[in-house]
Structures are given as C-alpha cells and as structure tokens.
Design a protein around this nucleic acid. Structure first.
Length: 256
DNA sequence: AATGTTGACAACCGCCTTGTT
DNA sequence: GAACAAGGCGGTTGTCAACAT
C-alpha cells in the first residue's frame, strides 16, 4: 500500500494557529460541518493540511471542550484509568467529558507521572492501592471467579429472556440463578478473559455501546476466543450478560 | 539584565485501522 | 482481495513563558 503524504507541504502553513485561522475554521465547520477533512482547508480558504485542521478542531476549537486546569478528581480518574488502559489516551478521554486525548496525554507526562513518583516515594497509600481502585476491583473480580466454585461456572448463563438491555447488565448484582450448558459455548473458558478485554467491556459499557451489541468487543471475542458473541441465540448481549453474571456481577464502578 | 533551564502544551509525524472502489 | 484514501491514535517535537542562576 502506498501511503499518501500526510499533507502537501508545499505552500501550506505549519505551526501555531492564528485567531484568524481559528475563526475561519470555526465558521466553516459551523456552516458546512467536517465531512471531508482533506477537502476542508481548500474549501474554507485555509493554507493548512486537512490533518492539521482536524487536530486543531478536535483538540482546541470544538465547542464542547473544557478548558482550564484539571481537577483533583479528574487527575485521580486519569491515574486509575491509566493503570488499566495504559497509554490508550483516547479511551481515557472518552471517560472525561470535555477533555481531549492530547490534553490528557500532556497532563500525564507533565503532572501525573511526577505525582505518582512522589506517592510511591512517600509510600503512603498510593493511588494505585486505594480501596476504590478500579484495577483492584477488577482483580478481585477475577480472583473471585477463580476461587469461588459457585460462580466459577464453565457454562454460560442461559437467560430467560432473549432480549437484554444495558440496564439488565448494570443491575446485575448476583450470580444468575439459571445455568444451562450450551454446545456453542462448551469450550469457552471464562478465565481466559484478560484484563484488557475486560477494560474494553467496561469502556463499551460506559460509552453506551452496550445497547448496540458491543461491536468492538464483539469482534474481540470472535478474534481472540473464536466465538461469535451472537451465539447461541443471535443476541450479542448474551455473552456480556454471561460474563457479568457468572462472575457474580460487575464490580461497582467509580463515579467518573 | 542576560543567559540558561525547566515545564506546559500545542502541533506534528508516522503508523495503524477502517471504509470505499 | 488489492489498492487506495481518509481518519484515528500515540509518540514525539517545537515553542514559549516562567523561573533560576
């Protein structure tokens, strides 16, 4: 595959944006939207490449961006999510309304890494060890699956209703009562669910994708585990319901 | 006051993924 | 299925202001 150049550098401006350029971009997007970033600068009369316009808009000019310093709560959230998600800045940003991945990345490198080091040096209840740590909750959750013979069920939960909503899942607090082996799931090993995968699930859950069949996580299941999450009854919710119910319910999520 | 250093953050680069033809 | 275009993402760099010497 031949990569197209990121931008045609000849004659195009780089570096910091001027107020005038910002205004042109804002006005254009407000009028016509941004269906085609590559064509946008030409149509708007900007001497920038489409990529530069997109970044400027998404990282700075978007009306829903929250400017200003990060609150302590936001910083704590970033630290927790980083424990789980690693450098997946966009995934972290998805949980912080009004904050961009770029902004979070910068805050991480300039503030939070330093703060973590200080915490570790002082050895006083570092954030990673706080009781509400999501990572700890997930670990507890997985340990529970391994150690609890009641919830460590090799077979999926068979739900009484074929239709499950996101509220079904979020309201699960105990193991399902009815379990039934299903050939389609016989080889499924729940313990194979790794942390990253679970994080994907949680991310999807939080972003509302729960109700649309978890497309990204569905693919993950199919690729990694060889199962279509639509099995056995064609409803993608089953896999997730199974995931949560066999584990005894979702850990309580922190209030992001 | 001049110079050097550091921190913050905007912007860019290049790779990867996805959608289209 | 291959080729390509475009968007998304994470890593990195460039710039500038604040602070220290």
């Amino acid at each position: 595959m031949v990569r197209a150049p990121c931008c045609e550098k000849m004659g195009l401006k780089r570096g910091p944006w001027t107020q005038e350029e910002d205004q042109i971009l804002i006005t254009y997007i407000n009028l016509y939207g941004h269906d085609n970033w590559r064509a946008l600068p030409k149509q708007a009369g900007l001497l920038r490449c489409g990529k530069s316009c997109r970044l400027r808009w998404t990282n700075y000019l978007r009306p829903d961006i929250k400017r200003g310093n990060f609150s302590r709560e936001e910083e704590d959230t970033i630290i927790e999510l980083h424990e789980i998600l690693g450098n997946r800045w966009s995934a972290i940003a998805a949980r912080l309304p009004g904050r961009t991945d770029n902004e979070i990345k910068n805050v991480w490198h300039t503030h939070l890494k330093k703060r973590l080091k200080q915490n570790q040096a002082s050895a006083t209840t570092p954030v990673a060890k706080q009781p509400h740590s999501l990572k700890m909750q997930i670990n507890d959750h997985l340990e529970n699956i391994e150690t609890n013979p009641i919830t460590n069920h090799p077979n999926p939960v068979k739900l009484e209703s074929p239709q499950h909503s996101s509220s079904d899942i979020s309201s699960v607090t105990t193991a399902a009562t009815t379990m039934e082996a299903d050939d389609a799931w016989d080889n499924y090993n729940f313990l194979d669910v790794d942390e990253n995968f679970l994080c994907d699930v949680l991310t999807d859950h939080d972003s509302g994708a729960m109700t649309s069949g978890f497309p990204a996580a569905d693919d993950h299941v199919e690729n990694v585990y060889g199962y279509s999450s639509s099995q056995p009854d064609g409803n993608g919710m089953d896999f997730w319901y199974h995931l949560f119910t066999t584990a005894g319910g979702l850990p309580e999520l922190p209030d992001f």
